[in-house]
Amino acid sequence: MSNSFVRTAILAPEPPPSGEKGAVAWLRRNLLATPKDIVLTVLALVFLTWALFHAIDWLFVQAVWSGPDRTFCATTVQGGIQPDGWSGACWAFINAKFDQIIFGSYTLDQRWRPTLVGILFVLLLVPMLIPSAPRKGLNAILLFGVLPIISIILLYGGFGLEIVETPRWGGLMVTLVLSFVGIAVSFPLGIVLALGRRSHMPIIRTVCVIFIEVVRGVPLITVLFMASVMLPLFLPAGWTVDKLLRAIVGVSIFASAYMAEVIRGGLQAIPKGQFEGADSLGLGYWQKMRLIILPQAIKLVIPGIVNTCIGMFKDTSLVSIISMYDLLGIVRFLFTDPNWASAVTPLTGLIFAGFAFWLFCFGMSRYSAFIERHLDTGHKR
């Protein structure tokens, strides 16, 4: 019996039909599949086009980019130079107040000091964020050990530098100080709390559970209020604690409770065999956690960690409740300047502050996605 009709080689796969791939196929499948989808897509495009046109016109085309005061953004009736109505976005306000938005009321001739701290921070942070950069241990020591000491000396003063009291700090500088210190403190403290909550020692476990549940059960505003207003009442007469330090402690404690639960979720996701394997190697508790368990747990909860950091970065705006002017607080405070009182000034300032917050949060989100892809060695799709 002849087998000549049986093919001995496997045919190469044929490409998909041209109508089933590409942008046109995606549009037909997701946006134009049914008459209802077509109507909704057309209505959405019309609305987006209308909204985008007016947004671009207000933000850029009709905007005022320079000027010494509100008259460049106001109508002639309000004492301005705009004949037909209010101008678009008053970016002249942001341009005139930019230094205050960044530094608050920090001494004018000393602003080179926070600028230098910012440059040092970027120079040390960037290599830390690049996985292939060498000498991570030295970099970490410089970033988390040496830089904070240098920053305190430069920002506050002493050792020959003019003293600049923390009530004069403000703007983006305060937002970055609060968020960076809060993240740097809450992450290791959260790990300790998560391990303590899983401890077999009843006293340690109870203390950690009470701390986490109490802190998570109250709003951040309450924590800041207690740290700023109530704490001095319990101190001896003549004793005081710097208001910025109180805010940093409050934000760090609040974030550490949430961070602890995120880390605990990662610890619970580790298979029991990993713990047993580490025990079979004769590793001690801290060796087991440092070398085997925590690296795997932290890798699993990177999205939760970054989400907590993003939330903490945005929550720094709540320090305005204790009369500290962060980025959003200083922008809102600058609205009270009568030289820039106009109908478009508040909206312009809030859009700028919102964009600044979005820029930092989006950067953290994108870096989180990059790290997830870089560490995704055991779950390849």
Rank of each mutant, 00 (worst) to 15 (best):
L193N: 01
L193M: 13
L193C: 05
A194I: 14
A194Y: 04
G196T: 14
G196P: 03
G196K: 10
R197G: 03
R198Q: 12
R198K: 11
H200V: 04
H200S: 04
H200C: 00
M201D: 08
M201P: 00
M201R: 10
P202A: 09
P202E: 09
I203G: 02
I204S: 02
R205Y: 09
R205G: 01
T206H: 13
T206D: 10
V207Y: 05
V207R: 05
C208D: 02
C208I: 14
C208L: 06
V209D: 14
I210A: 12
I210N: 07
E213F: 06
E213N: 08
V214R: 02
V215I: 15
R216M: 09
P219M: 13
P219C: 12
L220F: 05
L220Y: 03
L220N: 01
V223Q: 04
L224R: 10
L224F: 08
L224H: 08
F225G: 02
F225W: 15
F225E: 01
F225A: 11
F225R: 11
M226Y: 15
S228K: 12
V229A: 13
V229G: 03
L231D: 06
F234M: 10
F234E: 00
L235M: 14
L235E: 05
P236N: 13
P236K: 15
A237I: 11
G238V: 09
G238R: 07
T240W: 08
T240F: 08
T240E: 14
L244T: 15
L245G: 11
R246A: 15
R246Y: 08
R246G: 13
I248K: 12
I248L: 14
V249T: 13
V249Q: 08
G250L: 07
G250E: 06
S252R: 05
S252A: 07
S252G: 08
I253H: 02
I253Y: 07
F254L: 06
F254A: 01
F254Q: 00
A255M: 09
A255N: 09
S256Y: 05
A257R: 00
A257M: 00
A257T: 00
A257C: 01
Y258F: 10
Y258Q: 02
Y258I: 06
Y258V: 02
